[in-house]
Amino acid sequence: MYCITGKPPELPTSLEISGLKYLTFDNLYVVVKNVEEEEFSEINFKKNLSDIPWVELNARQHVEVICQIMESNTVVPFKFGTIYHTEDGLKKFISDYSNALIENLKQVEGKEEWAVKVYCDRKALSLQIDELSADAAALEKQIMASSPGKAFILKRKKDELVKNEMDRICKIYGQQYFDDFKALSQKYVLNNLLPNEHTGREDTMILNAAFLMCKVKVGDMKMKIQTLKKSDEKSGFNIENTGPWPPFSFIEINEKK
């Protein structure tokens, strides 16, 4: 199961996925595909989740199908691996949750999910620190005016100060970035900061958020990013922005007991 729409979906034709279809239940349209037990039975599916190329191919296809349907429709996206034994089982789910599904469709109509990640290259920031921190600049001035011996001690003191000041500046910038995007968005979700082993980058993640944006505000967001990139790149800040995503982070359906 890929997603639910409130209007008949236009199924993607450019993707090499056979068997995509939609089912209609109670004015809701469910985009589905029949899958084979050898790949998607409980045991085989769990096994396949250890197979990274398999996961990559299928997860990307899952997102791509929903993204293409989203181009002409509002969608409630489902997780990869949402599988029903029978159409009757699916029908029961839709009927049990139709109110919540319709409510969610309304909530995300005309909106898109955009991810914003901000990174700080601490080396680049440290080179700019005297311009961004009055304390660091004052200490640098003292170092310049000191004898070599005193300057040596003050330099060590400055190293410590620079570390703390960089942490402080990262927090200020991270908060500012978040506030800027929050002001343009309808909703937000803050995600955990990912360590470098996960990002594969050398700079440090200082903000990891998803924003639900009205489509008409997306242009403003992009302009904001361009402006911030220009102003903050020299200080080591780098914004990574991806989207539009299906609104995975903004669907709220509580499971019925």
Binding site: V63, G81, H85, T199, I253
Partner: peptide
């Protein structure tokens, strides 16, 4: 990036309910 894709398709989206083979 794949990490972002997986973060969404496995961690987010509708909570699984009903007659499902598996929840990831």
């Amino acid at each position: 990036t794949l990490l972002e894709v997986l973060d969404r398709v496995l961690n987010k989206g509708v909570i699984l309910v009903g007659d499902l083979v598996i929840s990831v």
